[in-house]
Structure formats: C-alpha cells, structure tokens
C-alpha cells in the first residue's frame, strides 16, 4: 500500500517537475532583474562624479580615490569592526540566554513573559529608546549620579557617553532580541530525547553542547548573526545619538554624501560594503561546514 502511494507520489511529482522548473527559472530571472541588475547599476554609478548636485556621466576613478582622502574607507572598516564586535558579543550573551530559556526548565509562563518582553522593543521607535540612554549615561545622568553619591568616583563620570564604548553598548541593547529570538527558536525545537541520549551515551555536558546543541541550532545562530550583523552595519541612530558625532559610521557618511546628492559616493560606499559582506558570508559558510553541511542542518528542521 505504502509502495503504491509512494509511486503515485513520485508520478505526480514528475508531472509537476516541468512546471516547477519553469517556476525556478522564472524566479531566477526575477531575482536577476530585481537584485543583480540594480547592484550592477549601483556599482557602475560609483565610477561617475557629482558636481553641484548634478551627476556627470563620464567614467572616472575620482569617487573611489576620494574615498581614501576623506577617510571614508576608514569609516567602512570602522563600521565593519564595530558591527562584527557587536555581533560577536551579542552571540556570546544571547546563546547561553537562549539555551537557558529553551532548555533550562523555565516555566512556560515565565518563558511567555520573557518572550513578550523581548518583542516589546519592536513596537517602540528606536530613536526614542536610544535617547533615554543619554539621560542615564551622561555626566548628569543616573549612573554618574549613583557613582558620585556612593563615593566610588570623586566627580561626575563623563566617559560613559559620546564615544565608541557608548555606541557598542547602545547597539548591544538594540540587537539583543534579533540575536536571541532565532537562536531560541532553533534550540527549542531540538528534541529533548537527543540531549538525553547524548548524556546516556556518556557524553560530557560540553560534548553535548558542542556536538548536539550547537550544530542543531546552527540555522538559528546563522539567522541571528545575519539579522544582527546586517542592521549593525547600517546602524546610524546609535552612533549619532550615543557616539555624539565622534563615531562616524557608514550610514552617517552615506547620509552626509546624500545631502550633497553625491550618488556616486553612496554607490561606491555601498559597493565596498557589499564586497565586505560577500567575503564575510563566504567565510561564515566555510566555518559552518565544520559542523557538517548547511543543507543537512536545515533538513533537521523538517523532521
């Protein structure tokens, strides 16, 4: 009976195949038109120049060369450094938290409350959330006040705000949910029996973590990394409001170029970041292969 139904299934699948091939091809054509062509246009724009709000369409390397002179290339590298640092620290904080939340025997009601709390920030405007930190971190703010009152410092503390530290901090607070939630999802669907079996077979806690939980939660980790790294590369509210203009990141630089309608500069900066991102994704994929093929990891989600 099972054999009959299986052959029927494969027949209907094979009937579907030409149609699905067309669909896949159509998808690729669309993807090419909607994603690749705009990227190529963007890239080619970086070889033009803007003078007095008018872009002249004569090929030139001036825009790329000017990136070096104005320190904009440094901005790109700084952005990349900060985004990667934030993503890494975020992962180190979020993974244990997600593990505890999913498998730490937390009561269902507590879980629900914590998950709800994690989603609240999505409903609040980011700049309103960040500006509050200024009144907490500033030298007239809460923390400085507490430090002075408790006699731990002799005067107001002014290094909590308007520097890279503050920007890192603001971004860590902002992107915590985007890192935690996907990892939590991935860990929570791991079958408890697998973890139990690992322990029964004599694996240490560390072995179970590294050889069972981490590989199985890899889709969530990857999603978390991408959902955090992407926005972190584009962050501009945290650097503007907590960096106090001393931490110039890519988006601020793009915004400034845009104020003079310098599309070629914007294009060059974006192309550069795309390149960096492409390198990162490849590196990430290679890293992920250490834990087995990515496809196999995703297939566990289907079971």
């Amino acid at each position: 009976m099972a054999a009959v139904s299986r052959s029927a299934l494969s027949k209907s699948l094979s009937r579907l195949r030409p149609a699905s091939n067309t669909l896949v091809n159509l998808y690729f054509v669309l993807w090419f038109c909607l994603v690749i062509i705009p990227l190529l246009v963007l890239f080619s724009f970086s070889f033009f120049e803007t003078k007095s709000f008018v872009t002249t369409y004569t090929p030139t390397l001036n825009t790329w060369l000017s990136l070096l002179d104005s320190g904009r290339l440094t901005v790109s590298l700084r952005t990349l450094r900060i985004a990667l640092t934030v993503t890494l620290i975020e992962f180190l904080i979020a993974f244990p938290f997600a593990l505890w939340l999913a498998k730490g025997g937390v009561a269902k009601s507590t879980q629900a409350i914590i998950l709800a709390l994690l989603t609240i920030p999505f409903f609040l405007d980011l700049s309103s959330r960040i500006i509050i930190w200024r009144s907490i971190l500033s030298e007239n703010g809460l923390i400085s006040h507490l430090l002075v009152e408790s006699g731990l410092t002799s005067g107001p503390v002014d290094w909590l705000l308007y520097n890279e530290w503050a920007v890192h901090f603001g971004m860590l607070v902002t992107y915590f949910p985007t890192m935690v939630l996907p990892i939590y999802m991935a860990i929570s669907i791991i079958d408890d029996a697998l973890i139990q079996a690992s322990a029964d077979l004599g694996a240490s806690r560390k072995d179970t973590l590294l050889r069972i939980i981490v590989p199985l939660s890899l889709p969530g980790i990857l999603a978390g990394v991408i959902l955090t790294l992407g926005p972190a590369l584009a962050a501009w509210i945290e650097p503007s409001m907590l960096g106090g203009g001393f931490v110039n990141l890519l988006s601020n630089s793009v915004e400034s170029a845009y104020s003079a309608l310098r599309y070629p500069v914007v294009a060059a900066l974006s192309s550069f970041v795309m390149l960096m991102l492409a390198i990162l994704v490849v590196a990430l994929a290679i890293l992920a292969r250490r834990f087995g093929s990515l496809g196999a990891v995703f297939s566990t989600l289907r079971s």
Binding site: E49, D69, V75, A260, R262
Partner: peptide, 10 residues
C-alpha cells in the same frame, strides 16, 4: 557642495 562635504568628512 561636493568639495565641502568631502572636507567635512575629514
């Protein structure tokens, strides 16, 4: 504007 903006970046 392009030249001034460039300098301002510095």
């Amino acid at each position: 504007s392009d030249a001034i903006e460039e300098e301002w970046q510095r």
